[in-house]
Design a binder for these strands. Structure first.
Lengths: 186, 186
DNA sequence: TTTTCATGAGACATTAATGTCTCATTTGTT
DNA sequence: AACAAATGAGACATTAATGTCTCATGAAAA
């Protein structure tokens, strides 16, 4: 069984932390423990304090995102196609992606260094897609990146609030990104 | 003199809080006081604790955004045109808009009620713009709203990190929103 | 069944954040 | 200059968050 019906305490904490901290970054460890359905002491048994929890979350988020992106990009016919395929995968991991982005600003150098690999890979993919005509040289790569990130996050919000399925939301994000809101439809 | 060169202590705190909390929502009141160049006691003289500060900030952000939007929409030839004009105004108040959006989730009913007016006005503007052809009925209004919000926030990030001027960023956001990344240029 | 182990609950200590007060200093006003 | 108001700095009290420990319980493994 690769998928135990009940998460381990450790995983339950991590999952609850992703969900809770996304809605309220000031949530206390006690809040997280409650949300995870776990005793406060248990949380401390698994994690060496808030910083440690955040580090573990960052590492896990980073791994999940990279794996999902790699898997999704299999058999893509172009860089643009890869980006489109990746979009749907990332939408479903919106809370992970968001968490990582937030950590970038605040956190220590370790996290920044660890995810800079991922970030650079994305950066390269974007520049490659730009050469294929996704966007012109007049458009700063920074803009393309940040706009894409936030549209993907928007899509995840649609899923989270049950306004769309992951597929629908990913379609909305991609069509809006490539052709604008006028061509967007779920 | 309508524009004192030096901000009052109260305003300095509010301004610093907008900037700091945007980068790190867990910042303490002590952090905010330091960032404002103000004694910690002074902060407490002006605000009745963290909640009070947040309430004041929400009220001010709400007011600034509404005023800026009203002013920007003057003389607009259509709802779409109004939206375009408003975009540049809001980009420059990106931290305010972001703060309000975050509060929506967390905060008490008062804030939600207060900004729901503003939100409804926006909602109406979007639906009116939709009838003018900004986007089709196949596109959920929720998506248009959240995508617009996050693109405007992305634009503000470009300004904040000095990757673009407010005008350039607003142009990028609007052209991406209406026609996609392919037509975006600063 | 017996043993082992993770856990929940709660007591307790420590630390960080917050709130209050005083006093000397500064700033602005008259 | 004389005065009043605002402030900064720091001491202190209170409260919230965090970290540690013990013990009883229940589940899983032997």
């Amino acid at each position: 069984m690769k998928k135990p019906i009940k998460l381990s305490s450790r995983d339950a904490v991590i999952e609850a932390a992703f969900q809770l901290l996304n809605r309220d970054p000031t949530a206390s460890l006690a809040d997280i423990a409650v949300a995870a359905g776990v005793g406060r002491a248990t949380l401390h048994r698994h994690f060496d304090g808030r910083d440690d929890l955040l580090r573990v979350m960052a590492a896990q988020a980073s791994g999940e995102l990279e794996r999902a992106a790699d898997l999704a990009a299999r058999g893509a016919r172009s860089n643009i196609d890869a980006l489109r395929k990746i979009t749907e995968a990332i939408v479903q991991l919106g809370d992970r992606q968001w968490f990582l982005a937030q950590e970038q600003h605040t956190a220590a150098d370790e996290v920044a260094a660890g995810s800079s690999t991922q970030n650079n890979a994305f950066h390269k993919l974007f520049k490659a897609a730009a050469k294929e005509g996704l966007f012109s040289g007049d458009c700063p790569v920074e803009w393309a990146l940040v706009a894409y990130d936030h549209l993907v996050y928007s899509a995840w919000l649609m899923v989270r609030d049950e306004h769309a399925t992951p597929q629908q939301a990913a379609n909305l994000a991609w069509s809006t990104f490539t052709n604008g809101i006028g061509s967007a439809q779920s």
